[in-house]
Design a binder for these strands. Structure first.
Length: 578
RNA sequence: CGGGGCGUGGCUCAGCUGGUAGAGCGCUCGCUUCGGGUGCGAGAGAUCGUGGGUUCAAAUCCCACCGCCCCGACCA
């Protein structure tokens, strides 16, 4: 490809609203442009990368027996009503009406459509297992899109769905996909880590996320250096702390202290000069509509997924202010566990407290501080057993610095990652609501067991840049680079230079590489800056300086210095690179 | 949805206490230069987000709306 007529509008400066490194570089290198919040145009250079990633994904999924399909992006309401997700999905689901006022949504994912397709045309165990996948545009009306294509509203996702006659078969297939995913990201040249994940609202019971390790990642990962356990901190189980013995002789009496206007643990801790670890953080939730009280240590963060699991409920939301008032008789910042069950004052739309559940760590908090259930007041000298007794204990907190691996009790290490893929075992969640059944060899009808597997293709592109760049621009891993070679001709007015460059251009092609030839009539500095910005893995410079010795210059983007290559040896040098 | 900020050529931004628009980059043309965003000159390009109000006069002040961004809540 010749650059002089290639649609590649590079920018010296990034747009002001570009909020992280990869977006800035994608804008500057002319890969993308923004049309609206969270909605991007992909220019030729960007699209080439997207296609490279897509092809790697396609090859690896085909290799394990996946079959590519193409599913509608506009999907009818009726299907989504069948699974109940028309309601559950909330505002993230973009809904539209056609001219007849029929309702549709823009696909955020495709379980409904694919399961519908399979239930219609697959009816025998002989047709199973089967895995169908597609590369499809997805739209999720994110509350706050950010980080460019990393968290866009419209994005390209590969979604795959497998259907099985048994749980065991699904399990086996899950392993195949897991292996394919490892090969995909390895081939893309990315540093990544598969971690245990929470399955979230998609449902199911087992899930992994594939994380590209990068400091700017949105997800936090807990890693055990000893046994290799790795999990999203949203999911990571933590070992129960060694229990400290209670010594009632050292218990202080309950004492109320005035803490006017101080709502947060941070504020009160600072005010009372007490370590946050001594605090009992009190939170109310509505679990399937009933109020529950959850307690975590002041320096810990409550993990709603863990709480949901511990309570065995499906619906969980933060309780509104009136629940705090009814149960604790005070605003949210001043609620506490002491004598809580006797404080209920029935009000409109409120129910009494159903249960009190506490994180394990509270077993070790003595002479603690909590809200006093009175406005502008906290209580000190709060002791478990004497002053309050949770109905149950569970692992409720987000894994944090100091927490230990549940397997080997070694402290976790923490890293950040960008989630580029996720695998789920769905079980029969969707086959049940959509009645996707098959007949076994004894004519018995059963629900298919499903797995589903996603890769954020556009996000993977951004993640690669996030991981591989320097102060000058992108440094593409060769496998996903938009072109492999950058060919720069210095003296474009000179016929000999151009003739030699054309020859080099053709030889690079002949060796099986793609090449972007910068033959613009620009100053060398401009071309080098653009070449560094675009970040193609290999660069050849043809100039009068080296041409007189029958040589050109070769440099890898990631390396500092260039070497000289005899033009006569070019074909063999190129062959060595392959 | 709460809090904050911003909308001025393609990009980055200036324009104070009102007098109907500027710079740099980019683009076009000419000369110059030619191994790390040359230098000089000449141009093209903006109903100052939209609507309303105040005023003799609004990019500037006021109101509403729209859009965008940041922090938080939310999140395959």
């Amino acid at each position: 490809m010749k650059l002089s007529n290639y649609f590649l509008p590079t920018l010296r400066e990034a747009p002001q609203d570009a909020d992280n490194i990869s977006v800035k570089l994608m804008f500057r290198s002319g890969m993308i442009r923004k049309l609206a919040s969270g909605i991007y145009e992909w220019l030729p250079l960007g699209l080439r990368v997207l296609r490279k990633v897509e092809n790697i994904v396609r090859e690896e999924l085909d290799a394990i027996g996946g079959q590519e399909v193409w599913l509608p992006v506009i999907q009818p309401k009726e299907l989504w009503m069948e699974t109940g997700r028309w309601q559950i999905y909330g505002k993230e689901l973009l809904r539209i009406k056609d001219r007849k006022d029929s309702e549709f949504c823009f696909a955020p994912t495709a379980e409904e459509v694919i399961t519908n397709m399979v239930r219609r045309d697959v009816s025998s165990y002989r047709q199973l297992p089967i895995m169908l996948y597609q590369f499809g545009l997805k739209f999720r009306d994110e509350i706050r899109p950010r980080f460019g294509v990393m968290r866009a509203r419209e994005f390209l996702m590969k979604d795959a769905y497998s259907f099985h006659a048994s749980e065991q078969d699904c399990e086996k297939w899950y392993g195949l996909v897991y292996g394919a995913y490892e090969r995909i990201f390895r081939r893309c040249g990315l540093g990544f880590k598969p971690v245990e994940a929470d399955s979230g609202p998609i449902g199911g019971n087992h899930s992994h996320e594939f994380m590209v390790i990068a400091n700017t990642g949105e997800a936090e990962i807990a890693l055990c250096p000893a046994c290799g356990y790795a999990a999203n901190t949203e999911k990571a189980a933590v070992a129960e702390m060694p229990e400290r013995k209670a010594d009632p002789s050292k218990f202080h009496p309950l004492t109320d202290v005035a803490t006017p206007g101080l709502y947060t643990v941070d504020e009160v801790a600072k005010f009372l000069k007490v370590n946050k670890k001594q605090f009992i953080k009190t939170l109310f939730f509505l679990a399937d509509g009933e109020p529950v009280m959850a307690l975590v240590r002041g320096d810990h963060e409550l993990n709603e997924n863990k709480l949901r699991r511990a309570l065995g409920v499906t619906g969980l939301e933060k309780a509104p202010q009136n629940i705090y008032e009814a149960i604790a008789g005070c605003p949210a910042g001043f609620a506490g566990p002491v004598d809580i069950k006797n404080k209920y004052v029935p009000g409109k739309d409120t129910k009494p407290l159903k249960t009190v559940i506490a994180d394990y760590a509270l077993k070790g908090v003595f002479n603690g501080v909590s809200g006093a259930c009175r406005n502008d007041t906290h209580t000190t000298g709060v002791n478990i057993g004497r002053d309050y007794n949770p109905d149950s204990f569970a692992d409720l907190r987000v894994a944090a610095e100091g927490d230990m691996c549940p397997n080997c009790r070694k402290p976790f290490e923490f890293k950040r990652g960008i989630e580029v893929g996720q695998t789920f075992k769905l079980g029969t969640k969707y086959s049940k609501s959509l009645k996707c059944e098959f007949l076994d060899e004894r004519q018995k009808s059963s629900l298919m067991v499903m797995g589903c597997y996603g890769i954020g293709v556009s996000r993977t592109v951004a993640a690669a840049i996030e991981q591989f760049h320097d102060e000058w621009g992108i440094i593409w891993p060769p496998a996903i680079a938009p072109f492999e070679f950058s060919l720069v001709t210095i003296e474009t007015e000179d016929t000999d230079s151009m003739a030699q460059s054309l020859k080099v251009y053709e030889q690079i092609h002949a060796a099986g590489f793609s090449v972007l030839w910068d033959e613009r009539n620009e100053r060398p500095g401009v071309k080098f800056k653009d070449a560094d910005l675009i970040g193609l893995p290999y660069r050849i410079v043809v100039s009068a300086k080296t041409l007189k010795d029958g040589e050109c210059e070769f440099k890898k983007r990631a390396e500092k210095t260039a070497v000289r290559w005899k033009l006569s040896e070019l074909p063999s040098k190129l062959a060595e690179l392959k």
